[in-house]
């Protein structure tokens, strides 16, 4: 796990929240996207690492894998009431599968600074790109 690299893009979707993430590897890119998604929902500094969850996923390509993975985090927020502070993600070389270990805690309105309730990942501008210098970039627009 390295420091998350993402920035919010306020002019892309007025009613929603967009971000761009970048990293040196696919795994780190997924970690940055997960951190950006979580930052939209809560101030991550107010989350505690009380429990650990592991997730394994497969998809037809890396775009599909990122979409499904971020959607999984939204599902865990709604179904299990869980938010995660840290992510360690390994993505296979072909970009079609991942293994993620994440630590976090249940939603607690008293101790956490909650923000927007993210409801879906959209396909608008969605995708992973390989930069010239070999870095990985992704743009994601979240439906609020």
């Amino acid at each position: 796990m390295t420091a998350a690299r993402f920035r919010f893009l306020p002019d892309i979707a007025l009613a929603d929240i967009a971000f761009a993430a970048s990293a040196d590897s696919l795994g780190e890119l997924f970690e940055s996207c997960a951190a950006a998604l979580t930052t939209t929902m809560v101030d991550r500094r107010t989350l505690r690492a009380k429990l650990t969850k592991e997730v394994e996923m497969k998809a037809e390509d890396s775009d599909g894998l990122l979409y499904d993975f971020l959607t999984q985090l939204i599902i865990m927020k709604d179904v299990d009431s869980l938010l995660f502070k840290r992510f360690t993600i390994e993505v296979s070389k072909d970009g079609k599968s991942l293994r993620c270990k994440m630590t976090g805690e249940p939603i607690d309105r008293e101790s956490q600074a909650l923000r927007n309730d993210v409801k879906a990942v959209t396909m608008h501008m969605f995708g992973i790109n390989r930069g010239r210098s070999g870095s990985w970039d992704a743009t994601v627009v979240l439906d609020i």
Binding site: G64, Y67, D68, T71, K119, A120, M123, F126, D143
Partner: peptide
């Protein structure tokens, strides 16, 4: 509703190729 939207966006993304539908925007 959002999950149903997400699920079928993924399904339709693949189905359009089969039905020969091309659209200007993935959404």
């Amino acid at each position: 509703g959002h999950q149903i939207g997400s699920d079928y966006l993924r399904i339709f993304d693949g189905a359009m190729k089969r039905y020969g539908i091309a659209v200007r925007d993935r959404e």
